[in-house]
Every structure is written in structure tokens, then in C-alpha cells.
Amino acid sequence: MATSEATSSAVRTAPLLDRLKGQAPALVVILIALLPIALMDLSTWLVLTLAGLAMGMMIFIMASGLTLVFGLMDVLNFGHGAFISFGAFLATAVMLPLTPWMEADSVWLNLAALLPAIAVAMAMAGALGYVFERVLIMPVYGNHLKQILITMGGLIIAEQLIVVLWGPDEIPLIRPLTFQGSFTLGDVTFEKYRLIAVIIGLLVFAVLSLILSRTKIGLLIRAGVENGEMVEALGYRIRRLFIGVFIAGSALAGLGGVMWALYEEVVTANMGMQVMVLVFIVIIIGGLGSVTGCFVGAVLVGLVANYAGFLAPKVALVSNIALMVIVLMWRPQGLFPVAKR
């Protein structure tokens, strides 16, 4: 009697564990987000969590295109950081002449300065992505070594061109008045801009997920990531699809660059390269080619960086490396491995 009960309970628990296994990465994120509560008081934790989420979202926006491009075409663009910097500089070029609008005490005037800046940044970063793909990357498909070298070369050229166009000095940037400052909820003060960054990041993630899971294009992209040859055999031109994804990814990098610049309130020619370190860590953690993985990885990196920055300031950047090492020891292919690789 007792044995049968034990077996039946074992039968009952086994599927639960199996179900949990599939969700393990999400659970880990929740665990990592909740653990630090024990080490700090609640209001600090809330502030840090928001900061971490904001940072994570911005990195996600910058990294999503890169990881998709890799999944689809096995191309890793080390020059992705150039789109980030370009986006930031273009937006600055639009916003600086509109400084009075940025400083005006009106949401609409602020948006009238900000939205065109974002639009220009995304459009031009996308266009730059197109040029980059056609001129630099297309001749070296399938050769990883040359890809790395060529895209690094592209990054050097792009960074230098930025300096040619905008000068070598860093440019200070102010946020639109509406997004400055903070608001209070209970006894906790939140920075407005961080909340907005989180909202934009979630929107981008939602839109990307919807496109990927609900549209024909998304279906083709996902199929292409799984098995590109099969998609081609069915009569779809995967090259064209790829260019589309590349342009979209570059545009997103431009958007991320604008948001990062407004977050840091300064633009420099090598900001793209600095952020790229985080971007690479994120897509490695997430699993190369996976957008969901990229999202989870970005949130993880953002949260860990902020908690670590508070608990042990000296190890903030090293904490990301530690995170990467731990994740890779647990899952060598990243949190959400893509089947093909």
C-alpha cells in the first residue's frame, strides 16, 4: 500500500519537475531578482530592480538584431556597435538644434523633438546597415575568420567617420524635460527615464515576439534560423529575408543607441564598442540566435550588474563575466539554445 502511494506520488511529481525544467531559465531570473531582497531593504531593491530592468531593456533592443542575424545567416557582426554610435550621434544632431523644444515644459514639444530624432536615427542606422551588409559582409559569407576581421575593420572605419563628422570630443546631451527627474511611489523614488526605457523595451519585445510568432515573415525567419536550406528549398529567398532582418536589426541598434545616449546623457564615438561587450555577453548567455534568450539574458545582465554594483561596487563589470561563466557551465549553448547549433 505504502509503496504504491510512493510510486503514484513519484509519478505525480515527475511531470511537475519536467515542466519546471522547461521553465528553468525564467525561474532562475526570478530567483536572481528576488534573492537580493535578503541583502538590502525593499525600497533600495525596487530602485535597483527598475534600474536593472531599464539597462537590460536597452541592451536587449541593441542585441536583438545581432542575435537574429546570427541565427539566420551565421553572421556575427562585430561592427554592430557602429550602428549604436551612429544612431546616438544622428539623434544628437537632430536634438541639439531643437534644444528649446527639449527644454520646453510640454510633453508634445518634447516629443516633437525626440520622435524625429529617433526616426532619423533608426532610418539612417538601417540604411547604414544595408550598406554595411552589401559592401562588407556579403563577400565573406560562410567564412567566420574573415567576417570577424572585416566587421572589425568596418567598426574602425565607422568610428573614425563619426569623429570626422562630429569631432573627437564627447557631446553632452540632455533628456527632454518631461523625462527628467523622478516620481515617488509610496516612499520609493523612481527615475522617470528608467520606467520609460522599460516600457519601450517591453514594447519592442512584444512587437518582435508577435511578428516572429504570428506573421508569415516571422514564420519564415524562425524557419530560417532552424534550417535555412529547407526554407530555400521551399522557394523562399532567404538572402532577401536576411537583408530585411539585418536592416531591422541595425535600426533597432540605432534606437538602442539613442536610448543609451539619453540614459548616459553623453555621446562618444566609441560608446558602441563599450556597449558591445555587454551585448556579446547577453547573446552568449541567451543562446546565439534566440530572441527570447536575448531578452532573458539582457534582463539577467542588467539586474546582476545593478545588484552587484550596489552590493560590491568594485566587481560590477566582472560580475557579468562571472554570470556568463556560470550560465555556460550550466548550459554550454546558452539559456535558450537554437536547435541548429
Binding site: 546570427f70 556575427l76 562585430f78 567566420h144 575568420l145 567576417q147 570577424i148 558591445m276 561587450v277 556579446f280 555577453i281 547573446i283 552568449i284 546565439l288 563589470l317 566582472v318 557579468n320 563575466i321 556568463m324 561563466v325 555556460l328 554550454p332
Partner: peptide, 25 residues
């Protein structure tokens, strides 16, 4: 030993991350 068993790209990314962390350190 940690990252050379996989692709060239992966090693490039890992070394970039480690080197930047080391510079910060």
C-alpha cells in the same frame, strides 16, 4: 579549455568580454 571547443566567433566574443573585464579590474 573553457571556450576553444566551440566556434571561432564564440571565442572572439568571450575573449573580448574577459579582456574588457580585466581592463576594468
Amino acid at each position: 579549455l573553457f571556450s576553444l571547443r566551440v566556434k571561432a566567433l564564440f571565442f572572439a566574443m568571450v575573449t573580448l568580454a574577459v579582456a574588457s573585464a580585466f581592463a576594468v579590474l
